[in-house]
Computed example of a mutant assay.
Amino acid sequence: MALMDSAERLFLERGVAATSVNDITAAARVAKGTFYVYFASRDALLSALQERFITAFCDRMRLAMDRHRPGNWSARLRTWFETALDGLLDQVMLHDMLFHDVRPGNREIMKENPVITQLTGLLREGAEAGAWQAADPHALAIMMFHAMHGLADDAVARGTADRRRRMVNTLTDTFAGAIKLSAGRSRQGD
């Protein structure tokens, strides 16, 4: 949608506070009234941009995990971390603008986070298949999400985002140990 694309570009270039609805509609080449047909406010547009980011993020992870056989749990777990890190680090400016700059400290988005829901499903399915143990898949997914996010933030701050393989190995090894990935399941090929 032209309004969302224009807003995203302008927010990244100028900042959210410095971008008005008039700026967005001018960049999208639509009348100001058109904006309000789709969005009740600039905050509603920001929420739509967040939702678009999260949906694309989850779709990328699902597609990447689906490249592996359904029973190859270790590859699916590793791929989740790999794809999540790539998705975050490749779009760090957009991510930060949407989730940190706009509403810093807002925890509302974490209540029904689709990324955590997706990871919870992976953990639950693997446990049901006997690939690992996960007594509380949702709590474990929250920890895994924040560990991944924390390593990505640290890599950006230190300028080491190019060391993704090391981060993926650390996350995979740490959480494979935590969930007691079954040895027979961890070596299956695609």
Results as ranks from 00 to 15, higher is better:
residue 13 E to G: 04
residue 38 Y to Q: 13
residue 115 V to L: 09
residue 108 E to D: 12
residue 52 R to H: 11
residue 75 A to M: 01
residue 61 M to G: 00
residue 78 R to M: 02
residue 122 L to H: 06
residue 22 N to V: 01
residue 50 Q to W: 04
residue 51 E to K: 14
residue 126 G to R: 01
residue 159 G to Q: 12
residue 124 R to G: 02
residue 85 L to Q: 00
residue 56 A to H: 10
residue 18 A to E: 15
residue 8 E to V: 04
residue 166 R to W: 13
residue 32 K to H: 11
residue 126 G to C: 03
residue 190 D to M: 07
residue 123 L to H: 03
residue 116 I to T: 12
residue 70 P to V: 11
residue 90 D to L: 13
residue 44 A to G: 09
residue 178 A to M: 15
residue 167 M to L: 14
residue 62 R to A: 08
residue 39 F to A: 07
residue 143 M to I: 00
residue 58 C to F: 03
residue 65 M to N: 00
residue 110 M to C: 07
residue 8 E to D: 09
residue 6 S to R: 04
residue 155 A to C: 12
residue 86 D to M: 04
residue 22 N to S: 05
residue 57 F to G: 05
residue 59 D to S: 08
residue 66 D to C: 06
residue 50 Q to R: 15
residue 34 T to H: 13
residue 56 A to S: 11
residue 86 D to W: 03
residue 62 R to G: 01
residue 100 H to R: 15
residue 42 R to Q: 15
residue 20 S to D: 01
residue 99 F to E: 10
residue 188 Q to D: 12
residue 168 V to L: 09
residue 30 V to D: 11
residue 37 V to L: 13
residue 111 K to M: 12
residue 109 I to Y: 07
residue 184 G to P: 04
residue 187 R to Y: 05
residue 158 R to I: 00
residue 40 A to N: 08
residue 26 A to E: 14
residue 76 R to Y: 00
residue 74 S to M: 03
residue 74 S to W: 00
residue 48 A to C: 06
residue 49 L to K: 06
residue 20 S to R: 04
residue 65 M to K: 00
residue 109 I to G: 09
residue 126 G to D: 01
residue 181 L to P: 02
residue 96 D to Y: 09
residue 175 F to W: 15
residue 111 K to T: 08
residue 16 V to I: 15
residue 156 V to I: 15
residue 13 E to A: 15
residue 71 G to V: 07
residue 107 R to A: 12
residue 132 W to M: 07
residue 158 R to V: 01
residue 168 V to F: 08
residue 188 Q to P: 05
residue 119 L to C: 09
residue 154 D to L: 14
residue 128 E to R: 14
residue 72 N to F: 00
residue 117 T to D: 12
residue 31 A to Q: 15
residue 107 R to S: 13
residue 66 D to P: 03
residue 140 L to F: 00
residue 37 V to E: 06
residue 114 P to A: 05
residue 60 R to P: 01
residue 112 E to R: 12
residue 24 I to P: 00
residue 158 R to N: 11
residue 85 L to D: 00
residue 71 G to L: 09
residue 69 R to G: 14
residue 38 Y to M: 07
residue 167 M to G: 04
residue 2 A to G: 07
residue 90 D to P: 04
residue 86 D to N: 05
residue 186 S to Y: 07
residue 187 R to M: 08
residue 181 L to M: 15
residue 56 A to W: 04
residue 124 R to D: 07
residue 107 R to D: 08
residue 160 T to P: 05
residue 90 D to K: 09
residue 142 I to F: 05
residue 141 A to Q: 01
residue 100 H to W: 14
residue 83 T to I: 02
residue 50 Q to H: 05
residue 38 Y to I: 03
residue 178 A to T: 08
residue 140 L to A: 00
residue 181 L to A: 12
residue 36 Y to N: 03
residue 125 E to N: 11
residue 137 P to T: 04
residue 124 R to S: 10
residue 70 P to L: 09
residue 10 L to R: 12
residue 189 G to Y: 05
residue 125 E to D: 15
residue 93 M to G: 10
residue 96 D to M: 08
residue 18 A to D: 15
residue 71 G to P: 03
residue 5 D to K: 10
residue 139 A to D: 11
residue 140 L to S: 00
residue 112 E to F: 08
